[in-house]
């Protein structure tokens, strides 16, 4: 079983939402800026709860923020 790949478009969505800063997003969902950076670089996959909270900020369904891309070989 390979590593699961989940991509996200948080960075693009932040800019679409009035150039929201990483710190502003972090404050709104209750995480640190470091975690936002890790999420945007796809170095960390959030819990389901955090994923829903982020999607709620952008008022989008979860799958428009996070996309399942399959597994690595």
């Amino acid at each position: 079983m390979g590593k699961v790949i989940i991509k996200n478009c948080i960075r693009e969505l932040r800019f679409k939402k009035g150039e929201m800063t990483q710190q502003a997003l972090a404050d709104r969902v209750g995480i640190t800026r470091q975690t936002v950076i890790a999420l945007e670089k796809n170095k960390y996959y959030p819990s389901l709860e955090l994923a829903f909270r982020i999607a709620q900020i952008f008022t989008l369904p979860l799958e428009e923020v996070f996309q399942y891309e399959g597994e690595t070989e």
């Binding site: 209750g30 995480i31 640190t32 975690t35 960390y44 959030p46 955090l50």
Partner: peptide
């Protein structure tokens, strides 16, 4: 202090 989040 900044809250410890799920990554921390």
């Amino acid at each position: 202090a900044p809250p410890r989040d799920e990554l921390d």
